[in-house]
Design a protein around this nucleic acid. Structure first.
Lengths: 186, 186, 186, 186
DNA sequence: TATGAATGAGAGTTCATTCAT
DNA sequence: CATGAATGAACTCTCATTCAT
C-alpha cells in the first residue's frame, strides 16, 4: 500500500521542517538538534518527531534530493562513451555534491539507511558507480587496486579536507578533486 | 624555571588520566567528557581539572607525543638529501600518525593551542614542513599550486577517509597516502 | 499581547516550584539552589529552568506578592491625610513585610530586576515612598537629613537585626521599628 | 599548661594567614574561602587548617583585636561619670568597629565562640555593656524596654544597613548611629 | 495531529575538606 | 609541621525524548 497521502497541513509542516533542516545542513551544521530545528521551522518538537522519528530519518530526507542528483550523474557517467571521462565526471559530481551537503557523506557511507527509498537509491548508486569504475579500470585509466568503496571514502575525505580551511571550501574542493583524479590514475 | 617536578602521586594520577584519555582517543572518540575520563581513570573530577583545566588542554597533552614524533619525522625529511624522498617521508609519517590519533587533526588545524609547548611544536612543524614542500616544489617533484596548508588538510582528509570503512583503517590509510602522493606530483 | 495563559499543568508546576522556593525563603534560606528547589517541588530541574531561568527570576517571582502588598501599603500611606501617620504606616508595613520575606531586601535594594514587572513595581514603590517621605519632611515630622534610600536601608537593617536573636523575630521587629520611627523624628 | 609556644616558622605562617584573612574582612568579604586565604597568604591549605580548623576559628582570630578594642571602649564607657554619655560612647564605638569589620557581628551575636579567649572577652563585653545600659536606664536616658541584646543586634543592623548603599559606608553608619541613639531615648 | 511542557540524564565547574608526601 | 594534590558532593545548565493536553 502506498504511504497514505498526508493531510494538507501535515504536509506543510513536514516541508517546513525539511526546509529548516536543509538550511542548517547547507550552513554547514549537520548536528541538527531537533529542538532547534523545530523552533526554526515554527513547529512543535513533537511534530518533528512525528515526521522524522530519528535524526537519521531527517538526515536522509534532507539528503534525498542531492542523492537523486548524484544518482542521475552516475547514470550519465555510465552512459558516457569515454570510460575515463565518465569516471572523472562521477568523481567531480560526487565532490561537488558532497561539499554542498554536510551530512551527505554520513548517509552515503554510514549504517544501513532507515528509509527503504534511501536504501534503494544508495544501492543503485553504488552498483552503477561500481560499473563505471570497472569500465575505467578495464580501459586502464584508473588504478586496479582501488575499489568503489575507496573512491566513495576518498571523495568524503576530500570534502572533509576542503572544509578544514575555513571560508569558502569550493575552490579547495575543486583542486583536491583534481588531485584525487590524478592520484587515481595508474 | 623548569616545570616543577610532579609529586609521585600527582604524576601517577596525571598519567592515569592521560591513559584514559588516550584510550578514548584511540578508540576513536575525541569528545573526551572530563567526567567520564575521570571515572575511567579512577580519579576524582577535580583531579582531572587540576591537571587539565580544559578539554583542549587534555587533548593537547594526549597529542603531545605523536606531535613530537611527527616533528622528528619532519626534521628528518628536511634533512633528506632527496627532496622528493623527503617530502614523501613527511606525508607518509603524517598519514600514519594521523590515523592513529583521532583528535590529532584538531590540534594541528584548529585554533591556537592553549599550551605554549604545543604552539611552539606546531609552529616549528609547519615551518619545517613548508621548507620541505618548497624544496620538493623547486625540484619539480610536487605540483606548484599546492600549499603546505593544503597538504596538511589533505592528510587529515585521507585519515578521515581511511576511518570511514570500519575495521582496520591502517591498510586503507597506506593506500590512500600513496594515491595522495601520486596526485601531488606535477 | 497578554502573557499567554499557562497550560493547566504548566501552571500547576510553576506553582509547585514557587511554593518550594517560598518555603525555603520563609525558612530563612534565600540561596535557592535550583536543583534542590526542583527536588522539593517534585519536578525536574528543566522545569524549574523553563519557568525561572535564573535564581534572580525565581526570587523576584517569590517576592512578587509581598512587593505588591508593600506597594499597596505605600499608596495607602501616600493617601493618608496625616503626613506623619502615612510615613509611619509605610515604615511599619515595610518592616513587617521585610521580616517575613528573606530575600525581599535583595530584590528591593539589589541590582536592576530581571523582570520588567518587578522593575516597574519597584520603581513606583520608590517614587511613591519618596513622596511620602517628602511630605512628612515638609510637615516637620521627619528629620531632614534622611533620604528615602536611607529609610529603605534602615528598614532592611531593622529586619536583619530582628532576625539575629533567634526564635520569633516578629516581636523584636515591631520594637525595632518603633525605635526607628522615634529616631527618625527631628 | 599554657599553649606550647609556636615554632618561629609556624608563628610566621599563622601571622601570614591572619593578615590575609584580615585583609579580606576589611575589604568587606567575610566569606573567607580557606583555599583562597591560603593562596593569598602564600601558604598551603593544610597550614590554614592546622592553625584554624574552622572558618569560625579564623574569624575569631581576625576579630580578636577589634573585640579587645571594643572591650576597652565599653570599660571606658562604664567608667564615664555621665551615664548617658557612657552609653552613647558604647554605641558609637560599637558602630564604628562593626562597620570596619565585616564578620564582627557574626562573632558577637553568633553561636558560642570556639575559642575560650573569645568567649571570655565576649562574656565580659556583654556583662559590662549590660551595666552601662542599666545605668543609663536608671538615669532615665534610655528606654526601659530595650535589652542589651537588642542594642547589640541593632548596632549590627545599623552596620548592615550602612553597607547596603555601596561606596563608603562610614558616613551612613555615623548618621544611622545617631538615629539609633535618638530612637533609644525614652 | 500538533503542541510544547516536562523530564532527567549528563556535561561542566567549583570548593571545602582530607590526607599522602 | 607544611604542603598542595586529591576527593567528591553540590550546583548550574543543556538537550534529546516523551507525553499530557
Amino acid at each position: 500500500m502506498p504511504p497514505a497521502p498526508l493531510r494538507a497541513d501535515a504536509a506543510r509542516n513536514r516541508e517546513r521542517v525539511l526546509a529548516a533542516a536543509r538550511a542548517a545542513v547547507i550552513a554547514g551544521d549537520a548536528s541538527l538538534p531537533l529542538n532547534e530545528i523545530a523552533r526554526r521551522a515554527g513547529v512543535g518538537v513533537g511534530t518533528v518527531y512525528r515526521h522524522f522519528p530519528t535524526r537519521q530519518a531527517l538526515l536522509e530526507a534532507v539528503t534525498d534530493e542531492p542523492l537523486a542528483l548524484l544518482l542521475a550523474e552516475v547514470r550519465a557517467a555510465a552512459a558516457d562513451p569515454d570510460p575515463g571521462g565518465g569516471f572523472a565526471r562521477l568523481v567531480r559530481a560526487a565532490g561537488r555534491i558532497e561539499i554542498d551537503n554536510v551530512g551527505f557523506a554520513e548517509v552515503l557511507t554510514g549504517d544501513d539507511p532507515a528509509a527503504a527509498a534511501t536504501a534503494a537509491k544508495r544501492a543503485e548508486l553504488i552498483a552503477v558507480a561500481e560499473r563505471v569504475l570497472e569500465r575505467a579500470r578495464a580501459a586502464g585509466v584508473v588504478r586496479a587496486d582501488v575499489t568503489a568503496g575507496d573512491v566513495q571514502r576518498l571523495v568524503c575525505g576530500i570534502g572533509h579536507a576542503a572544509r578544514l580551511g575555513g571560508a569558502d571550501p569550493h575552490e579547495r574542493a575543486e583542486l583536491y578533486t583534481e588531485l584525487l583524479l590524478a592520484g587515481l590514475r595508474p
